[in-house]
Design a protein around this nucleic acid. Sequence first.
DNA 1: AGCGTTTATTAATGTACATTAATTTTTGTC
DNA 2: GACAAAAATTAATGTACATTAATAAACGCT
Lengths: 195, 195
Amino acid sequence: MTAAAEQIIANLSRHISLTEDETSFFLSRLKAKTLDSGDVLLQAGQACDTFNYVVHGALRAFFSTENDKEVTIMFAIADWWITDMPCFVNRQPAMISITAIEDTSILQLRYEDLELLYTRIPKFERAMRIMMQNAYVREQLRVLQTFSQPAEERYLNFLQKYPGIASKVTNKHIASYLGITPEFLSVVRSRLRHK
Amino acid sequence: MTAAAEQIIANLSRHISLTEDETSFFLSRLKAKTLDSGDVLLQAGQACDTFNYVVHGALRAFFSTENDKEVTIMFAIADWWITDMPCFVNRQPAMISITAIEDTSILQLRYEDLELLYTRIPKFERAMRIMMQNAYVREQLRVLQTFSQPAEERYLNFLQKYPGIASKVTNKHIASYLGITPEFLSVVRSRLRHK
DNA sequence: AGCGTTTATTAATGTACATTAATTTTTGTC
DNA sequence: GACAAAAATTAATGTACATTAATAAACGCT
């Protein structure tokens, strides 16, 4: 088994345990892919067919507004799964784009293969249920903090909650994840420095 | 079978189909409860033990900030499920409160009973997976719109997306769901009127 | 190492929305 | 149907953050 396969199985085993047969069937449905920093994994407007597990590196999902602004939806580093979930589950063209912000290696699971896994190995429903549950809770807390905390607190919170991400991404990207401009994040950082 | 039981089963059947035995086991784990408008279903600080299905009426989940502001996390009308999900799944004291904004009747599923359902009837993992997936997608789009659209667009969007909710709740509550003050929502509405 | 390109910072000005407070309208209740 | 209480509206003032623009710092590439 490759190191990447070991890693994804170890990660899955936090939620469900698989037999040898199940493990090899699951692994057989994955397709490895490598991306150079800057490469586009998913382009807005195109079909969103894969759910992507990050082996190493870092990806960023973002929405581009009419006025050329970007809203960062999420980051994904090692052990995270990423896709355009609204479009993946509803079989719609992607609304967001996903690019590599480092050289990255991923394992891809196609929509049909995920459906196949649900059918053949119902335990995958459980794994996915837990992942979706965690994602929901994360997004709900993000809304709550956005509405109840000023940018400075949200920034400190982000640094504390996702140190592994903060160390890999630019301030520009952090700003667009927090819903502020890079210029204002600079002001926030400068204020924090002078405290 | 009561009308409420018929309703929750019809709703579940959008995701999974149950045998007669499974149906009656599921129903046996539910507890009916009625609330008068204004009643508190969940109080911040207390244990969050139940996942609640709304038969009819309307509930509101909200977070209270230090400065006495309220952020509306979500509304739930007929056929919606509601709880303090972060606290429910992590067995933590509730951070939010849930109150009835109309006379309401609900069916409650306790945490241990949900776990039991997962074990005895794994199909429930699927139902829950789909529900969590939908909730995640909803919240992610909410973040995206909050960061990319002005209050006026978000308000129109809300009216269009949740007409059944909009007709039941006050503007004050809508404002706190959109992340703005009621005063500013008044301004927005007045601008729309004069267009 | 050098040079172009992207990113970060700083500062001036502008705006979407918050705050406060007063008035009107709506709602619920006996 | 009257009356208190909550909700909605309006307007004046204030502020967190956006915008624009210019400079400095960091990065990527040969």
